[in-house]
């Protein structure tokens, strides 16, 4: 057994023609080996197929040629979507409790602990639609972590937040990730965010899209929280753009 948690191989992913739009080959010859405990960030131009790749890895999309292999049988997945996708008719605490098994012995305690961790203890009994978007995202993050996933998939989970909220969520994510090492696949447009979070950065590009860049990011946990260092690293990495 190697130290890879996950291997996603997409020989070809095609979306069939719809009405006025011809058939589209979105991904081709993508082979992604994800090392156990690494934080892999995927970037690339809008519409290139990042979400498609993540959906394939999650098993939500099965219409592709290729395969997804996990090192562990029955690996536990979490997915943090671009929108929070909380159940509006259940309270924040119920939303999080629901992803644990009903007969999970310390379920309520785990929910309380994770809510405390993301700073939502006060909002536990509130319905999601009465919270700000930032708080809903926190709840979604808590839900993703409470199951203690083997693999965490995140599709632009912090877009359309103001900078301070997004930053505090990123810091929270780094802390959560550090306290319980998890394999993460994270999609984003934001290069600063990418450098701040990634241990390995993957760029998709071309049409159909393939991996065009694959770089390790060597920053310590402290350096990641230092904005100057992150920006400098980003400058070096993407020099002129």
């Amino acid at each position: 057994m190697d130290s890879n948690a996950l291997r996603v191989t997409v020989e070809e992913k095609t979306f069939p023609a719809v009405e006025d739009r011809p058939e589209q080959v979105v991904l081709s010859a993508v082979d992604l080996n994800v090392e156990e405990g690494s934080f892999v960030v995927i970037t690339g131009p809008s519409g290139c197929g990042k979400s498609t790749l993540l959906n394939i890895a999650a098993g939500l999309d099965e219409d592709y040629r290729g395969q997804v292999a996990f090192s562990q049988a029955n690996a536990k997945l979490s997915f943090m979507f671009q929108t929070p996708r909380l159940l509006p008719w259940r309270t924040v605490a119920q939303n999080i409790r629901l992803v644990l098994d009903d007969d999970c012995p310390d379920g309520d305690k785990r929910v309380a602990a994770i809510l405390d961790r993301v700073g939502l203890s006060e909002a536990a009994t509130a319905y999601p639609e009465r919270l700000s978007l930032g708080m809903q995202r926190r709840a979604a993050l808590a839900r993703a972590f409470v199951v203690e996933p083997d693999i965490l998939l995140m599709d632009e989970p912090f877009v359309s937040l103001d900078d301070p909220s997004a930053d505090s969520l990123r810091t929270l994510l780094i802390e959560l990730w550090a306290s319980k090492p998890t394999t993460v696949l994270f999609v984003t447009h934001d290069r600063t965010e990418a450098v701040m979070l990634a241990t390995r950065l993957i760029r998709l590009g071309g049409k159909p899209a393939a991996i065009v860049q694959d770089t390790a990011i060597e920053l310590s946990a402290d350096e990641r929280l230092d904005r100057e260092k992150v920006l400098a690293y980003r400058m070096r990495l993407f020099d002129n753009d």
Partner: peptide, 12 residues
């Protein structure tokens, strides 16, 4: 569909 995918991921 969004919520369905969510419940699928978390194995409801």
């Amino acid at each position: 569909r969004d919520l369905n995918e969510m419940s699928e991921i978390y194995r409801f």
